[in-house]
Design a protein around this nucleic acid. Structure first.
Lengths: 143, 143
DNA sequence: ATGCAACTTCAAGCCCACTTGAGGTCAAGA
DNA sequence: TCTTGACCTCAAGTGGGCTTGAAGTTGCAT
């Protein structure tokens, strides 16, 4: 059991951010010593997970839906599957973008945005994105 | 040459968003017919690129620094390289997160956050992140 | 017992990335 | 010529994700 300053040091999250996350139900403290919050180890894993999920572009609301707010989260398999699929799409986009950037670095075309190779790289990722957007319009429940 | 409503349809960006991007110098219109903005094809590639870069977690400011604001952007190779490297890091994090989620879907441990396999998956990504954070503290210029 | 650093609450503020609304202008068709 | 409607500008508003500041409360060391 440790207090907010240790958790802050360990996680790199500011105390105000930790309090905010608790307020919106993303993490929890397990008790108090006087006024001071006390945390247990589990919260560190949780914070790592939140941090990664944010990097992946999920909002705090989506993260809460995914991992729940309690120690024993109700993990809905269909939600987890949807998140994993979303990450796969994102990975493909990022890969295309990275390849595009690396190509541009070595490309001698006068205007890189008009380089056919670059455009093709970008278009591939965009096409996936648009196909995805279309699907979620036809099928709004599975967002 | 086409107007804002066609560009909006083609790109999926709202007219207000397109005007906003022009205001902050991310895209440009090449002229007017009366009051109405006129765009040329190049802007579509640019918008695709912006869209991807946002997915990758870059701010509009960073995107502007990376691709410049003009038709013939000043592409700084060191900036491009840094962005590409950042994307690589992010891809690794996303991969770990996705694997973690997929594992949890099939894991029968009572509390998933305490599943050692899950923790290991998460910790790997987090370690990379923290190493990166440390490096940029020691070397604040190369962010 | 007293001080004080580290915590606490709660409301307000801030930055980013847009959106909205009010009021204005223009080009083309009836 | 007159209307229509799609565009325009500019200022203010919104929502997410925090941070900041003022004022209060504690455990612990002296």
């Amino acid at each position: 059991m440790f207090d907010i300053s240790e958790l802050s040091r360990a996680s790199g999250f500011s105390p105000s951010k930790l309090r905010y996350y608790e307020e919106i139900g993303l993490i929890r403290s397990v008790g108090r010593r006087g006024l001071k919050r006390l945390y247990e180890d589990e919260v560190k894993t949780r914070i790592s997970l939140i941090s990664l999920a944010q990097t992946a572009g999920f909002s705090l609301g989506e993260i809460k839906e995914t991992i729940g707010s309690e120690g024993r989260p109700e993990l809905d398999r269909t939600v987890l599957a949807a998140r994993a699929d979303a990450i796969d799409v994102r990975i493909k986009e990022l890969t295309a973008l990275r390849d595009g950037l690396r190509h541009v670095m070595n490309c001698t075309a006068e205007n890189h945005l008009e380089c056919p190779r670059f455009q093709r790289i970008i278009r591939v990722a965009l096409t996936k994105k648009q196909a995805d957007a279309k699907r979620s319009k036809k099928n709004p429940d599975k967002g």
